[in-house]
Design a binder for these strands. Structure first.
Lengths: 243, 243
DNA sequence: CGTTTAATTGAAAGCAGTCAAACTATGTGG
DNA sequence: CCACATAGTTTGACTGCTTTCAATTAAACG
């Protein structure tokens, strides 16, 4: 059964906004070209005008900023079904880089097409703005995570968030998943070094908070993990199901 | 000469979006009630539905999140003319707290009035969404600041940002300003302790990056400060003037 | 297989945190 | 205007989390 490439985006927008049949099909009728990105490939660079807006069909991606002395901070993570850079619709120049985290498949949509869609379908406009706003909320939580939690809690928090978001996109595998990031990237997302990520993972394993086989992680006691993280999913704005 | 309370908001929105005379006066005609907030008073609490949307007329405010073990992270700072919680228009529950940083004057506007305004005036809608998006951009930069810079660069970055934003709102006093935060709040914004803020301020004073008299700060060499911070104002999306 | 990339581990150093005390400013009531 | 209380700043000594540097092992890839 072949699924429409944008159906996951529709699904995601409908988690937080109400769309009519007309809205739905207008989204699915958006003009788009498919594109494959290899691991680490740049989809957008800081300082460039965001020409297009893509939706992740398969694989993972992240946004990233570099400081003047070359350090990297990952500022967001994207799952299949996520729209990359909807915010670029409102800004002339990108303030960050977007990169493929794994080999990825994109649906590339012209900015103008989305703009027109938003004018014709106010509900879609609201849905898109809601999505942008939720992303901002996640960023605030990440800031809190990096600014105010220690390594283990920070890492636990990221793992909890990833689990909830996978579930929300219908990609959940119940108590276990394949983490698409190498330890250096985890560090870049959490404001830590890869070496310390390694040690922290080991410590969490020792504490029976996680089990690892390669890059696949299992959570024997998700409640304990949430407690360590101080995780509360309110900021993901998923409604009651995200509890 | 008495100025309209919302004129600073209009000014701010026009920095990044084009508004017609009709758009401008529609904003100025928004129904509102004035309200005074004393220092530290809460304007919105996490978990609550955001009932209204206020604009800061005078004084300063900040957003803040608390972790489960009581630590606080300040996630944004607001100057006179800033709209507080425009993003609340799209979410059912607040994911953070908003507090007055100093004694402050607000124009409180009903959510519905803004919603109606946005429907009738698409340009205002775009301006508001642009504003929300820029706030998200600032959050990403803060995340990078906290995650990847050391104390002195982190603090220097905050000081640079504050200077540029004051200028942009027409509140600049050229090479010097009164910082509205106590050292503990600076620490909460930067993911550091108040003690360390104190020591870092002292170090920067010794290094002739800043001069202090009470809470007023002067910048004898703003270029050196920017260099220490690795500050680039692109993320504020002010156009060329923010360079 | 050999090569590259990533994970792991150890030892040492450093940045920032903690705790506690002293000092200064600010504000209030008498 | 003083005395006192409170809030905020400053400083010292010590601890500790995280980084750095370097080397080793394991995994992934062509």
């Amino acid at each position: 059964m072949s699924v429409h490439p944008l159906s996951m985006l529709v699904r995601k927008l409908e988690m937080r906004s109400v769309l009519s049949d007309a809205d739905r099909s207008a989204i699915l009728d958006l003009p788009m070209t498919k594109r494959s990105m290899s691991r680490s490939a740049y989809m957008l660079r800081e300082g460039e005008p965001p020409a297009t807006c893509s939706v992740l069909i398969e694989g993972y991606a992240f946004r990233q900023k570099l400081t003047s002395d070359g350090a990297r901070q990952i500022v967001s993570l994207h799952l299949p079904g996520d729209a990359l850079d909807l915010q670029g619709l409102f800004l002339d120049l990108a303030d960050h880089n977007i990169q493929a985290l794994t080999q990825a498949e994109l649906a590339v949509i012209p900015r103008t097409a989305i703009r027109e869609l938003m004018v014709k379908h106010p509900a879609v406009s609201v849905a898109i703005h809601t999505d942008i706003t939720v992303e901002a909320s996640i960023c605030r939580e990440w800031l809190t995570n990096v600014g105010r939690r220690q390594a283990q809690a920070r890492l636990a928090h990221l793992l909890c968030e990833f689990a909830v978001r996978l579930d929300a996109q219908g990609l959940g595998t119940d108590g276990s998943y394949e983490l698409p990031m190498i330890q250096e990237q985890i560090g870049d997302a959490l404001g830590l070094t890869s070496v310390h990520i390694n040690r922290t993972l080991k410590a969490m394993e020792l504490g029976s908070l996680i089990c690892r086989t390669g890059r696949s992680i299992t959570f024997p006691n998700i409640d304990a993990l949430r407690a360590v993280a101080g995780f509360s999913p309110l900021y993901l704005h998923l409604g009651v199901q995200g509890t």
